Simulated scan of single mutants.
Amino acid sequence: MKCIVGLGNPGVKYESTRHNIGFMVIDELVTRNNFQLNKDKFKGKYAIETINGEKILLLKPQTYMNLSGESLRPLMDYFNIDLEDVLIIYDDLDLPPGKIRLRQKGGHGGHNGIRSIIDHLGTKDFKRIRIGIGRPTNSQPVVDYVLGTFPDDQQSMVQESVEKAADACVRWLETPFEEVMNEFNNKE
């Protein structure tokens, strides 16, 4: 079983914020396939479904971003999910809005959700899709920026990046991740 994890913060207050773009990708997959995140355990909301004959677990940790690993680790242990079958989706300040980047491993880059996952998994070697949110252009603190919403003029490119990330997830279900990486990292 493959596990696709979208990072974000729970609650209506954070729903459309930059930091919740990982949740948005899970929502896109749920909507496309008429699924429901109807299980509530392991400090997360999840569903176990099938796409193209591949059994998948879709997870939205409900721990708040900085504690994401507290949801993922016990869930992986319970369902005996191998690290190679996990894909994490999250926001990235260093990519412009609309861009996505797939990687097979890496550091946390200052992202506290990824830091928590690295701490709980004991490794940096997990697949990820980073989705660009850009950096603040004024003196706005980063915390306020990531917890803010996308401006109207970025909405269509953000939606496009969410759809591209969801496409990459589905592609990974039937194609080695390295090939998916080459395909989507070269799409511009």
Results as ranks from 00 to 15, higher is better:
residue 156 S to H: 08
residue 92 D to T: 08
residue 66 N to S: 12
residue 37 L to W: 04
residue 7 L to G: 07
residue 148 G to K: 03
residue 90 Y to W: 01
residue 124 K to E: 15
residue 109 G to Y: 01
residue 21 I to R: 02
residue 109 G to S: 01
residue 62 Q to A: 09
residue 37 L to I: 04
residue 5 V to L: 04
residue 27 D to R: 08
residue 5 V to A: 08
residue 14 Y to M: 06
residue 48 I to W: 03
residue 117 I to Y: 01
residue 157 M to P: 07
residue 69 G to S: 11
residue 111 H to R: 03
residue 176 P to K: 05
residue 51 I to P: 06
residue 100 I to W: 00
residue 58 L to Q: 06
residue 156 S to T: 15
residue 150 F to N: 00
residue 64 Y to G: 07
residue 168 A to K: 09
residue 142 V to T: 08
residue 158 V to W: 10
residue 96 P to N: 04
residue 160 E to V: 04
residue 26 I to F: 09
residue 144 D to M: 02
residue 186 N to P: 05
residue 130 R to A: 01
residue 115 R to Q: 08
residue 152 D to M: 03
residue 168 A to G: 12
residue 92 D to S: 12
residue 134 G to R: 00
residue 112 N to Y: 02
residue 32 R to I: 06
residue 10 P to C: 01
residue 48 I to C: 10
residue 107 G to R: 04
residue 31 T to S: 10
residue 113 G to K: 10
residue 28 E to F: 00
residue 142 V to W: 00
residue 50 T to N: 14
residue 67 L to D: 14
residue 160 E to Q: 15
residue 187 K to S: 14
residue 94 D to L: 01
residue 91 D to N: 07
residue 15 E to R: 14
residue 184 F to M: 13
residue 164 K to F: 01
residue 47 A to S: 15
residue 157 M to C: 11
residue 108 H to C: 14
residue 164 K to N: 04
residue 41 K to G: 04
residue 188 E to S: 11
residue 135 R to C: 05
residue 99 K to E: 14
residue 172 W to E: 07
residue 155 Q to K: 15
residue 171 R to F: 14
residue 87 L to S: 05
residue 110 G to W: 07
residue 37 L to A: 01
residue 17 T to H: 11
residue 43 K to H: 13
residue 21 I to S: 05
residue 184 F to Y: 15
residue 33 N to Y: 15
residue 179 E to I: 08
residue 168 A to Y: 04
residue 150 F to S: 01
residue 79 F to G: 06
residue 65 M to C: 11
residue 96 P to L: 00
residue 117 I to L: 03
residue 55 K to Q: 14
residue 75 L to Q: 05
residue 87 L to P: 01
residue 134 G to M: 00
residue 20 N to W: 03
residue 159 Q to R: 12
residue 36 Q to K: 15
residue 187 K to D: 15
residue 13 K to P: 00
residue 114 I to L: 08
residue 48 I to V: 15
residue 20 N to A: 02
residue 133 I to S: 01
residue 141 P to D: 03
residue 71 S to W: 09
residue 31 T to I: 02
residue 11 G to R: 03
residue 21 I to Y: 02
residue 68 S to K: 07
residue 171 R to K: 10
residue 156 S to M: 06
residue 54 E to C: 15
residue 119 D to H: 07
residue 9 N to Y: 12
residue 111 H to V: 03
residue 2 K to I: 13
